[in-house]
Design a protein around this nucleic acid. Structure first.
Lengths: 156, 156
DNA sequence: ATAAGATACTCAATGAGTGAGATAATGTAG
DNA sequence: CTACATTATCTCACTCATTGAGTATCTTAT
């Protein structure tokens, strides 16, 4: 309405776009979870487990997913019962558990990500390498900022 | 590994960036919900209610959040009880309900979005108007594709 | 040894979500 | 105007994920 010079590039419109994106993503994840007899949390956990560079621990999962220890144990129980993961005790520190994913988890993740990857691919094709570098820089910047945000105490 | 000419702009890295973004966003939302005595679903619903151009109906919320009618009713009950929204029967079609938000909802939303908006703003400042147009186009494209994805039957 | 701290698990209680069905308003025939 | 189908929301009994306090096991420091 005012201050909109040329494009759809003001703060509000970006916020809406980003919000809409996460909403769509969540909906898809939720739908997928239901289709595969999993729960939201299980899918989230599975993604964290698969994305982690080295086998993750229940404690770290607890932090990442922002759940209580009981919920994590239950979640891992479900995933283990369904054959997606396996718990392995650390050799050196026998208090800690490492979560290893099995083939079933990879299959599920592949099924989840294939359509998403296809969509992403369609989008990427439409942009030049230079434009994509710009977008990549933007996404990195957003991720950095959001990362800072969660570290901040909060404003209440 | 192959075909990576120049930047961090291949399919996989974009998928990871987008995933990480939604994960961060969800974590923040979850944290915020807990701090304010709300639930994930309530926050999601509140955002949908506030983002809707005209008062939304429980039915559309059901579609957007991918929940059952019972869950939506319960969610709206909670939000109404907490003084965030009010249900208003449509005059012409008295079956439908319109969800109006009250000041309390706006306050909560403002508290939620202020830090996010600040973060977004920090990011936006670092890019030129032309770059931002590119990014906006990219986000729109992603949103369109994701929208298509949810309309598709699914692959199971 | 002993104490203190960390990591994961157990379990009773809570309550969000499900899904079939009720309720009520609207549209459409005959 | 009466019957039937449709749409939109709500009700309610049930399921099961999550909470949160407490327990068990292991590590580290004194």
């Amino acid at each position: 309405m005012n201050g909109d010079r040329g494009g759809d590039t003001d703060l509000r419109s970006f916020a809406v776009k980003l919000r809409r994106m996460t909403a769509e993503y969540n909906r898809i994840a939720h739908e997928f979870a239901a289709d595969h007899g999993l729960h939201n949390t299980d899918v989230q956990a599975l993604i964290m487990i698969l994305d982690a560079p080295s086998p993750i621990t229940p404690g770290r999962l607890r932090e990442e997913l922002n759940l209580t220890s009981g919920a994590i144990t239950a979640c891992l129980d479900r995933l283990e019962r369904a054959g997606h993961i396996r718990r392995v005790r650390d050799v050196h520190d026998r208090r800690v558990v490492h979560v290893h994913y099995l083939d079933a988890a990879k299959d599920v993740a592949a099924a989840f990500f294939r359509p998403l990857a296809r969509s992403t691919d369609h989008v990427l094709r439409r942009f030049s390498p230079e434009e994509l570098r710009t977008v990549a820089a933007f996404l990195d910047a957003v991720n950095d900022e959001l990362g800072v945000l969660r570290a901040t105490p909060g404003s209440t």
